[in-house]
């Protein structure tokens, strides 16, 4: 009888494995291109990638990025080139994680990590400054006291970067591939990406596992 079919359906759910997880104790693996909080990247020699061009601030639909560029000091340059971002702030009470800043960045200075569990209790903490956003010398983002990191999260740093970005390197011209991450090399190519670029060939794939959708 149709009336009782529904009761059977709901009752049967008791014996099936749960679709939800007890969240803070168990976490689902994040998607490969998850948009989390930003990081400001460095080159392998420690130079900052940001050149203070303010394209990210210009493209931001939520107007949450504030950048001021300044000329590099002659004797101790912060970034390769003329200018660097000497103020860089992102207001996470406004950011919608649309990734347009990452798309706009000509030097891949700003990327999004997979960190999303940062519930601050002071609204001043919501504004991440340049110092907080910059990765350290190993390419690992700086952990803020209010952020909830789990083992392996520090490896989810720069996440997905625009594969076609020239990154200032002639080797990337015309290829579609991951670009290098400080400290973690280059990821193995995905379907549709070319493998025959020099940077990808140098990469050691074993260092960048654990990013994928596999279930832990």
């Amino acid at each position: 009888m149709g009336l009782f079919d529904g009761f059977k359906v709901t009752f049967a759910q008791i014996f099936r494995p749960r679709v939800t997880v007890p969240y803070p104790n168990v976490k689902r693996p994040k998607p490969l291109r998850f948009h989390g909080r930003h990081v400001l990247n460095r080159y392998e020699d420690g130079m900052e990638k940001c050149i203070g061009c303010e394209l990210c601030a210009g493209v931001c639909p939520a107007r949450c990025i504030y950048v001021r560029g300044a000329d590099n000091p002659q004797d101790d340059p912060v970034s390769p080139g003329e200018r660097y971002g000497f103020v860089y702030e992102i207001n996470y009470l406004r950011c919608i994680h649309c990734d347009l800043c990452v798309e706009a960045c000509p030097t891949e200075a700003i990327t999004e990590s997979k960190l999303f569990e940062f519930s601050f209790t002071d609204r001043r903490d919501a504004i991440y400054t340049r110092n907080e956003l910059l990765v350290d010398d190993q390419g690992i983002p700086k952990k803020q006291p209010w952020e909830d990191w789990r083992p392996g999260d520090e490896r989810n740093t720069s996440a997905w970067m625009r594969a076609t970005s020239p990154n200032g390197s002639a080797a990337y011209e015309g290829t579609v591939a991951w670009s290098g991450e400080l400290g973690f090399g280059v990821r193995s190519p995905e379907h549709g990406q070319s493998t025959d670029n020099p940077a990808a060939a140098e990469a050691d794939p074993s260092t960048i596992e654990g990013h994928g959708d596999e279930v832990h």
Partner: peptide, 10 residues
């Protein structure tokens, strides 16, 4: 929660 295949308050 059991009937809806989820965990509920824990």
């Amino acid at each position: 929660s059991d009937l809806q295949n989820r965990i509920g308050p824990d």
